[in-house]
Each structure stands twice: as structure tokens, then as C-alpha cells.
């Protein structure tokens, strides 16, 4: 099974390294890689099975170390696969906090079916939790990921946006290259959309 310079579980380890290296928010799910690892596991298992059967009939103990070694390789493959999936799940969770309940189209294509399902369920349970707290009104926990330093922020307008109404009825005309001092909570979305720029 093992080729000249290839070890067991190389493929699985490659999967994790690939995930670690990628600079994207989440790289596409490596269907092919996962399948190859699964095949490897299957092959190892079948070989082990055959030899184990051989042992039970003949009682030949010489193959025992080999059996143990194969089993360890199989375990390692399994651990690597689980790590791969778990790390992706963590990233998907982070997605929910960053982008809200709807996955952006370009990211959606890199998720596999079960992952999308997981995202939806996670999103649902997060939403129901947020609704349950805060004295019946609910709190948007995703609003401030880091505790804000001040209630107001200084922003600079990067594009011509037009009028923007604050919660207290104050109307602000957002024009390119003007600078404003506004309540953080209300302009945060505009900052995320790239209309305003937060200046420090």
C-alpha cells in the first residue's frame, strides 16, 4: 500500500495544512481530498481485517506489530479528518457573527451541503437565544463584537450617500469627503458597507 516516500495519513495531514494556509474566509470544501482519505482508511481497515482473520485461524503472532501500526495510522487519519471538519465548523460559526444570518453568495459556494445545514441550525439557535434574553426585547449580540470605547465615533464619508436619518429624527446629509461625529450604533452598518470610514 505505502509507496516509496509516502506515509500513511499524508493525505489527511495535507488537508489540514491546506485549510490552515488558505487566506480566504473559508476555502472550498475539499471533496476529493476527503474521499481519498476515506478510501485510505477503508483500504487499511480491509487489510487489517484480512490479517486479523488469518490470525484467528492460524494463531500466528508475527503480524501483530504490523496490525497495531496500521491501526494507529487509521486512528490518525480519523483524527485529521475530524480536525478538518471541526476547524471548518469554527469558521462557519464566525461567519454567522460577522455577516449575519444570510451567507454571502460567494462563500456559500465553498460550503458543502451538511455545512449549510449546520449554519442554518446554528443561526436559528443563536437567534432564538438572542430573542430570549434582554427582558423580553432581545439583544443583538452580534452588534458589538468588541466593547465600544465611546458611544460616538468620528466618520468620514467615502461616497455620496445622500440623506441619512438618525433615530432621534436628526437628518444628516452624507456627502463625499465630509466628516461627521455620529452615534456609533446607528452608523455601524454604514461603516461595514464601506460608505463611511471610521477615523481614529
Amino acid at each position: 500500500m505505502a509507496k516509496s516516500n509516502k506515509m500513511f495519513a499524508d493525505k489527511a495531514f495535507e488537508l489540514i495544512k491546506e485549510l490552515e494556509r488558505s487566506s480566504q474566509t473559508i476555502p472550498p470544501f475539499d471533496d476529493d481530498g476527503v474521499r481519498q482519505v476515506l478510501e485510505e482508511i477503508k483500504a487499511i481497515f480491509e487489510e487489517n481485517c484480512a490479517q486479523a482473520a488469518n490470525y484467528s485461524t492460524s494463531g500466528d503472532r508475527t503480524l501483530w506489530p504490523l496490525l497495531n501500526f496500521r491501526h494507529a495510522a487509521l486512528q490518525r487519519n480519523k483524527r485529521c479528518l475530524l480536525t478538518y471538519l471541526y476547524q471548518r465548523l469554527l469558521r462557519i460559526k464566525a461567519l454567522r457573527w460577522e455577516f449575519g444570518p444570510i451567507i454571502p453568495e460567494d462563500i456559500k459556494t465553498s460550503l458543502c451541503e451538511p455545512e449549510v445545514n449546520f449554519f442554518n441550525t446554528y443561526s436559528k439557535s443563536l437567534a432564538s437565544y438572542m430573542r430570549s434574553i434582554g427582558d423580553g426585547q432581545g439583544i443583538d449580540l452580534t452588534g458589538d463584537l468588541r466593547p465600544p470605547k465611546s458611544l460616538y465615533i468620528e466618520v468620514r464619508c467615502i461616497v455620496d450617500y445622500g440623506k441619512f436619518e438618525l433615530e432621534d429624527g436628526e437628518v444628516i446629509y452624507l456627502k463625499k469627503n465630509s466628516q461627521h461625529y455620529l452615534p456609533r450604533a446607528q452608523v455601524e452598518t454604514l461603516v461595514r458597507q464601506g460608505i463611511l470610514q471610521h477615523i481614529t
Binding site: Y152, E170, I172, S178, H180, Y181, L182
Partner: peptide, 13 residues
């Protein structure tokens, strides 16, 4: 100054 007092302002050059 206005920042200390949380006053809203817009600066237009």
C-alpha cells in the same frame, strides 16, 4: 472639544 461633550457635528471643507 465637541467630542468631549458628545455633540454631533459635520465638517465640510
Amino acid at each position: 472639544l465637541f467630542k468631549y461633550d458628545h455633540m454631533l457635528y459635520s465638517v465640510v471643507p
